[in-house]
């Protein structure tokens, strides 16, 4: 009985440990340079933008239901000036969506 409880307890610890780190589905931070912008046409209308973080690039989609503190019309200034951005992003349907955007 003691042994069984120990094994089950160990299992729970392992599962919780595996879930608590970077492997969770919560928002993640990406910090890098804006290297591409897919415009929606109008002022500050951005469909997605690509952030280069080291050797990797991430296409991040803009959520039309989110009001960002960061003016999206300003993204191009970051691209032109090679000024990094900090993006909190979460995965939905296999795509990254920005939850928050800011200067890095």
């Amino acid at each position: 009985m003691m042994r069984r409880s120990f094994v089950v307890g160990l299992g729970l610890v392992l599962i919780l440990g595996a879930c608590s780190g970077e492997g969770s589905n919560g928002p993640r931070e990406i910090v890098g340079l804006v290297v591409d912008i897919q415009s929606g046409g109008g002022f500050g209308e951005v469909k997605s933008f690509t952030v280069k973080e080291g050797d990797e690039q991430f296409e991040i989609f803009v959520d039309p239901d989110v009001t960002y503190d960061f003016p999206l019309a300003h993204l191009n200034a970051h691209r032109a000036g090679a000024e990094p951005v900090r993006v909190e992003a979460e995965t939905r349907g296999g795509k990254l969506f920005a939850v928050a955007i800011g200067d890095a």
């Binding site: 970077e22 591409d36 690039q57 992003a89 979460e90 995965t91 990254l96």
Partner: peptide, 14 residues
């Protein structure tokens, strides 16, 4: 669901 697979989806564009 590691960050390098699902949560962080690299693009090959450019």
């Amino acid at each position: 669901s590691s960050p390098d697979t699902e949560d962080r989806i690299p693009t090959t564009k450019g």
